[in-house]
Every structure is written in structure tokens, then in C-alpha cells.
Design a protein around this nucleic acid. Sequence first.
DNA 1: TTTTAATATTCATTGACAGGAATATTCGTT
DNA 2: AACGAATATTCCTGTCAATGAATATTAAAA
Lengths: 112, 112
Amino acid sequence: MSANIIATLSALAEPKRLQIIELLREGPLTVGEVAERLGLLQPQTSKHLRVLHKAGLVEVHAMANRRIYKLCQLPFRELDEWLGSFQQVWEERFDRLDEFLLEMQGKDGYQT
Amino acid sequence: MSANIIATLSALAEPKRLQIIELLREGPLTVGEVAERLGLLQPQTSKHLRVLHKAGLVEVHAMANRRIYKLCQLPFRELDEWLGSFQQVWEERFDRLDEFLLEMQGKDGYQT
DNA sequence: TTTTAATATTCATTGACAGGAATATTCGTT
DNA sequence: AACGAATATTCCTGTCAATGAATATTAAAA
């Protein structure tokens, strides 16, 4: 369940990779195009794309010499769902600490 | 802008820290309680909580001896907004590769 | 078939970070 | 003031991952 979330997060938690992802929002791109648009060396670009691919964030399509990388939807949907599990929390009364402090106070004999 | 996103992602991209975050969904907790509920040692728990705090994911409230850690909303909202910038993309025609391949084909003289 | 473009991979180096053990700090209690 | 509970910090060590340089692979073009 949240194992995939970790994979997604780790893959995204790297500046250049995040840039790549944001770039790919505009549409599928070739390795060379990604490298050029972001000012990266080709080998590093390939390596980052491989990490993103392993994490299931992008898919590849071979076309002659070139490899076209394209965003996948699933991991982003999963991440979005996971974030959704928090939105319920905000609506609850957990955003006020006051009553929790009171509850805390009773737990054992601490004088404030 | 996306600098904060990176901080958020890096902080979350660690199994134990993600567990802590998910635990704190249920409400604010003491360091000791977090450690106990997740079977972690106290020092590691403190260290993870410090990272989460530096990233702005949790806030602390000192109460006598204890420190109560509580989730922050902002970073999660930001992450959610960032994810939102993708949802537009899915609706576009980028999910079909076909026409992109055609467009690609014209770029320079490659025979398929 | 030799060359050239596009991409992937390997290797070595380096820096960041998590884990464990030990210790320091803070504060309430007696 | 001394003790004990709760938490933070330091030090050390091992591991993983990003980087750069060089090289290998694949396919197209001449």
C-alpha cells in the first residue's frame, strides 16, 4: 500500500528529477530533449529517467534510435489518494490543540 | 515554489518518518507515545521528528517535560496543489502517444 | 560496411543520511 | 538540592545514491 508511496516520494525527492517530471507534464520527450531543456548531461539524464522508470513514474517507448519518455498517471493518483486521507483529519477538531492539552493533563499527575 | 515541495518530499520519503506522519493523523502525540506506538527508540524518534519539524511538516508544543508533536496542514495542501497541476494534463490528449509519434516523425528525417 | 547520432551502462569518488550507543538537557518531584 | 522522567544531542559507523568521466550499445545514414 504505502510501499509504493515511498517509492514515488523518493523518486520525486530529488531536484533534477522533479524538474524532469514537471517538464514531462507538457508532453512526452526524448532523452536528448530533456537533457537540453534542463541543461543536463545525457548520462545523468538517462540515469534519472531510469530511476523514475523503476519507480513507475514514467514509461518508455522506443522509436528508432530514440526513447520517448512519458508520464504515468497511476503513481500520481495514488499519491493524491494518500493525501486525501489527510483532508478528513483537517475537518476534525485536531487543529485546535486546546482540548487535547486538557485531555493530556488528565493522563497522569502533572501540574502545569 | 517547488523548493518547499522538495523539502516535503524528502522528509516523507523515509519509511519510519512516513509512519510517524500517518500516526499523527490520528492526533497530536508525545515523543514517547510515538516511539512506543511504532516500536522505535526514543533518540531515533526525536531525530526523525526534528527532520519533520525542519521541513515544516509538524509543529511542537512544549508541555512541562514533554513535547507534543502535531501535523501541519500547509505542506500537505501545497503538495496537493502541486499534484493538481497534473490533473489538467491527464484530461488533455497526452495520454495517447499516437499523435505525438506522428508529430515526432516529422521533426527531422528519420525513416520508420 | 564504416561512420555518426542517440542512449545506456560502468566505475570510482564523494557527500548525505539513518542507526546505535552514550551523554546532555530540561523540568517536575520529593 | 538531589533524583528521576522525558526529550534532545553528539559521535561514530555503514550504507546508499548522485556526480563526472569514460565506454558500451543500438540503430540509422552514407
